[in-house]
């Protein structure tokens, strides 16, 4: 457990020292959301209709873009080998890395999402559902994406492979996440969608680290 907390602490310190890199996905998210009204026209009705899907797609893409370097650095400098050969299991390594990655990239995004939602004139009662759905959905995106990253870490070139690998698994998250916000904006209850997201969330964070750990083991043993 000592190694686990050390690793989270290390990641957060490193992210703080490389603030420029860590804010990349936040900037990307903001740009996509802000460019949309310029592109499709600033009609309030239109924007409030597309807002749930738009914010969710932007969050999904921002998360996916940030994933690429999740394990690459640790793989290249040999830190991963150290973990694989230590008494700690790679599952705890995977868990710590994925969790700190979520804190670094997704939490800022969840914090600013309500502001963007207001600027896209999403109804106020849908905003807390948006935050809740992102809270459940973004860890899921990172934990599922982590499997893809771990599988492609050992490869020399992997630029387009990762999105192709993980996007199909992102679609259920996108459907339930965006539709939870949409039905709330339409005046209905989003309980069903949120329950499904919650179930996926529990499954994802409980099982994905095991898949990540075994994929990393394969990458290391090359």
């Amino acid at each position: 457990m000592r190694g686990f907390f050390y690793l989270i602490k290390r990641d957060l310190t490193l992210a703080f020292r490389r603030r420029g890199e860590a804010t990349n996905s936040l900037v990307f998210f903001g740009l996509v959301v802000l460019l949309f009204p310029i592109g499709i026209g600033a009609s309030e009705k239109l924007l409030s209709e597309v807002a749930p899907g738009l914010i969710w797609i932007a969050a999904l893409l921002a998360t996916m873009l940030s994933l690429d370097n999740l394990f690459k650095e640790d793989f290249q400098d040999g830190t991963l080998e150290q973990w694989a050969l230590s008494e700690h299991s790679l599952v705890s390594f995977a868990w710590a890395r994925l969790f700190s990655h979520w804190v670094i990239t997704a939490v800022p995004l969840i914090i600013v999402a309500p502001l963007f939602a207001i600027s896209l004139s999403l109804p106020a009662e849908a905003i807390w559902v948006l935050v809740l759905s992102l809270l459940l959905g973004t860890p899921l995106l990172i934990f599922i994406g982590g499997i893809g990253v771990a599988l492609t870490t050992g490869l020399k070139k992997s630029s387009m492979l990762l999105p192709l690998l993980v996007l199909p698994f992102y679609i259920p998250v996108l459907i339930f996440g965006a539709s939870a916000v949409e039905v709330t904006a339409g005046g209905w209850s989003a309980a069903g969608q949120l329950y499904v997201l919650g179930a996926l969330f529990v499954l994802g964070i409980a099982l994905a680290p095991f898949a990540v750990a075994s994929a990393l083991k394969v990458s290391v043993s090359q």
Partner: peptide, 9 residues
């Protein structure tokens, strides 16, 4: 043969 070190630490 690599050093498992982080440059920013």
């Amino acid at each position: 043969h690599q050093n498992p070190l982080k440059e920013d630490q």
